[in-house]
Design a binder for these strands. Structure first.
Lengths: 241, 241
DNA sequence: TCAATAGTGTCTATAAGACACTATCTT
DNA sequence: AAGATAGTGTCTTATAGACACTATTGA
């Protein structure tokens, strides 16, 4: 192990204090190709230095002593991808001893959602790329980032309140079909349009607008707006961390 | 602020790397007094040094560079209370800049459950005490520990699977009435014994034994055993962290 | 007109709660 | 026998899914 350039040996590692970093799973949604279901996708960055140079990794970086953890996540995310998410939530802290070969690294993982306008709109950079959540190119990732991504998906699928997060993957106004697409992408199965409509309207977390979306070759759907209720007690302000 | 002995001033704080600590919310259950509902309770430790000397705090301490976060939680818990929990789960990481007045402190909060035998069985120590979850004496706690406790309760109440955690607050065998007591303490309301029985037996996560609990002045209840299904992907091994 | 999706109505299966009832222990 | 909790049966109501049906647009 210690023959790899730049890797500390065991004795050195024991004397280093743990480094603190944040990494963020950033999810957006894009429309399914030729009638298929919508897909969740995410931007990843290519590592340019050791360890794991050349592999895809979650965007992230060190925590500055003068910023909170949420601020660190927001800043790193903006710096590496140019994105400002509509939602930011702390996921889990990964601190196993051997998760980085070079030093003791404790990473606070965050989970961010982008609305439809932002998907694909990262800064032009050869070292940033978007993949569908099930793309084999990110089956392997640097460090334990694949485990972090899997955990993010597990958390997403086990959310009791999809309403809170689903609307943040869309714009401010959306059709019920678009909202259903989000649910289908998260749950990984098709939902009955009729039942979906009824269930959602009965929860009263969405509200009709007077606008309709024209252009499709069918009856124009009504646009809806999300009317949120109280957030989770520790939800992060995506702008101020 | 900097007049308090031992408190660093702002300039000093900016140069200090964040300290890493773990704190644990340890919950057990005890029987309600004179027919009242069962109550959740927890051990807390009295701080003997600044800051917040004299106040009650969650058990915890620093993370050693050579141990994982879960190991740190388990070790600190054993050292301060003498307890070995049956369940340990990572809760959330608190890292606001001003959460400790003396230095930048990042705390990974854990959540532990004790079974009935262990409640009250801490090491004899004047600086360790048990309180009911709603005891006014812990309405205020050191640092942001009250916020951590509130968040732990919120997470507990929002668990989709109570079965997984309820049985860890009891022994290996338990009556349905005891299990119902756990649910009632968590949810904060009484449940219909008949419906509770049916609902729980239909989930099939518990199994009958051939034993009965004698001694009460009523028909002796059957004892049940928990038959778990797969854990959460990041559940912590309470013995090995 | 047709294709396509929007949106409604209604039936059914399942689960949750209320509550009356029977069973079996200790004192 | 009395008192207490164990455990069963059954009715009502709320909800999720299946699926047939009508409505309204662009081509």
């Amino acid at each position: 192990m210690s023959s790899v350039p730049g890797w500390a040996n065991v004795e050195e590692r024991r004397n280093l204090p743990p480094a603190l970093a944040v990494s963020t799973v950033i999810l957006g949604i894009r429309e399914g190709k030729d009638g298929g279901p919508d897909k969740l996708c995410l931007p990843v960055v290519r590592r340019v230095r050791q360890p794991h140079a050349g592999m895809w990794a979650l965007p992230g970086g060190p925590v500055d002593p003068r910023e909170s953890l949420g601020q660190a996540a927001g800043r790193n995310l903006a710096e590496t991808t140019g994105l400002r998410p509509s939602y930011l939530e702390q996921l889990y802290t990964f601190g196993d001893i051997d998760r980085s070969p070079t030093h003791r690294l404790v990473t606070i993982a965050y989970f961010a959602l982008l609305n439809a306008d932002q998907v694909g709109a990262t800064v032009q950079d050869d070292n940033v790329a978007w993949f569908d959540i099930d793309d084999p190119q990110i089956a392997q990732m640097a460090f334990d980032h694949r485990k972090i991504l899997d955990y993010a998906m597990w958390r997403l699928r086990n959310k009791t309140e999809y309403g809170q997060i689903a609307h943040r993957l869309l714009g401010e106004r959306f059709t019920l079909a678009a909202l259903r697409g989000v649910y289908e992408a998260i749950l990984g199965r098709r939902l009955d349009p009729a039942n979906f409509r009824r269930t959602l309207k009965s929860t009263a977390s969405i509200e009709e607008t007077d606008e309709y979306l024209a252009g499709g070759q069918h009856r124009p759907p009504r646009l809806y707006r999300y009317v949120g209720h109280g957030p989770d007690p520790l939800e992060v302000d995506p702008l101020h961390g």
